[in-house]
Design a protein around this nucleic acid. Sequence first.
DNA 1: AGAATTGATTCTATACTCGCATAAGTGGCG
DNA 2: CGCCACTTATGCGAGTATAGAATCAATTCT
Lengths: 297, 297
Amino acid sequence: MKIDFDGIQAFVVIAELGGFSKAAEHLHVTQTALTRRLQKLEAYLGLRLLDRTTRYVELTVVGREFLPQAQTIVGDVTRAVSRLKDVSSRSRGNFTLACIPTMASQMLPKAMRRYAETHPGNRIRIIDASGFEVRDAVLHGQAELGIGLPTESHVELEEALLLEEPYMFFCREEHPLSRKKQIVWSDLHEAELIGISTMSANRIFLDYQLAKRGIKLSGTYEVRHLSTAIGLVAAGVGVAILPNSTLEEGARPGLCRIPLTSPTIKRKIVILRKRNSTLSPAASAFFDLVLDQAGSS
Amino acid sequence: MKIDFDGIQAFVVIAELGGFSKAAEHLHVTQTALTRRLQKLEAYLGLRLLDRTTRYVELTVVGREFLPQAQTIVGDVTRAVSRLKDVSSRSRGNFTLACIPTMASQMLPKAMRRYAETHPGNRIRIIDASGFEVRDAVLHGQAELGIGLPTESHVELEEALLLEEPYMFFCREEHPLSRKKQIVWSDLHEAELIGISTMSANRIFLDYQLAKRGIKLSGTYEVRHLSTAIGLVAAGVGVAILPNSTLEEGARPGLCRIPLTSPTIKRKIVILRKRNSTLSPAASAFFDLVLDQAGSS
DNA sequence: AGAATTGATTCTATACTCGCATAAGTGGCG
DNA sequence: CGCCACTTATGCGAGTATAGAATCAATTCT
């Protein structure tokens, strides 16, 4: 049983326009083809749908009954198909992106602006979550893409480097170290250090990097979000070691940002996608755009 | 733009069954064919609908979005098509029949009983109306078939003879003529004749037939329906000349039915259909059945 | 490591659909 | 009554597409 969509479409158009020739012109095929399509459909069904002489074309009783159904079928199919062609050719559609908060307020806005220019109308749903949650969201399909920290090369994840940023020392202008051009790790007094929760991917990474070099750090205070840490520093509670992009340049006048060296430790920001899964064109375009932006900066 | 229903169906079945081979079995084609159908559809759309390895087949984001639409499309089409095949192969369906009242209570019941045996579930809508109305109903498509009197060979109508029946003389047993075995037209006393309205096709036909033979008839009373005339005869108002089938044999004990000769005038009952129009299988089956019944009686 | 499963590919034969040219049917007009 | 204009149907040839058989390739399970 081989169902013939062309035949149904032929039937609908012929019935609507009231003639084979007119319908043929409308469908950009010859009248011959339409005659044959309808004949084939009728033969397949075993019924006559159109009574036609060389003068008139009119619906049979069965044809009149079938026409509305045929119309909705043809309508549904052409609508669905043309929508999909739109999705593919112009990358129309929406997608979901998971992103860690710092990047959501730093790098993401610029990318979204550029994306909006090239793909007006496409919406991006953003899940802003911790590094772990970003990874899981991508892994479980809640988000097609993720921006976050590198994973331990998970088999089902594929990651591409977006940027590297050094950890910096943040303090108030009144702080004794604020005048230095650069700071080494041994300069730090643990007592006043505001740390990030040991549950965070950020902290785990930093601890690991420091441990490799024999450095151990344990602050007095512990918060979960980088932005909270910045707030505490600004309030004079202490100092903090945070990724450079935590604070936009010149966003908080009273705060100093000083490079940390010996060693300089950098964290990587990557864009994540599920391996072996095809991105929607909308997400794919965004992926390309972000990679391009990363490569050119 | 050539839309591929097979491809959409392949997509749906593969997605639902989760594998090409299973889907191939279900559709009674080879796995090769399905691979190709899906490839063709994807190429046409310019996107991937299924991410597949040799181990898993799973929907892409776009595929997941398209699946419900595809399912309704496939469902609608197969449902509509199989219904039509049902209509054609088993003459399923309803139709409308126009019929003059006498035949509706005489010949029609038997035909309907036989039809119901061979085509259970098919409904017949019956328009019982005058001879003229029957003709118009068929002509204007309100009814596919009509049972009534012959028309003046209307170009757009085709008629087939069902039966011929003589006009008979009806009177009460007390009537002076009731003992005769047959009656000739000159026996009639016009004064007590119950006529049919001159608007009726029946009356026009009868008048025409009599006029050809130089007989003119004009009753005192005039009614519109044959059944009313019978009622009046039974009530002793007068006598009437009516088609034989107006009264079933033995239906009214007190009434006599006597042949009218010199000449015997018969009216024809025909089944009408529109010329050059295709009947629905349901109506066609009924048409054949009625003709068969007429031929064998 | 090998067997089993499953989707992809290659090759070939068949079937299909189309378009051209033309026939055939139908209503209108002189 | 027959010719003309218009519309659908058909014969035929060709190019394309589609299906199936056999085989390959990748992956998992034992």
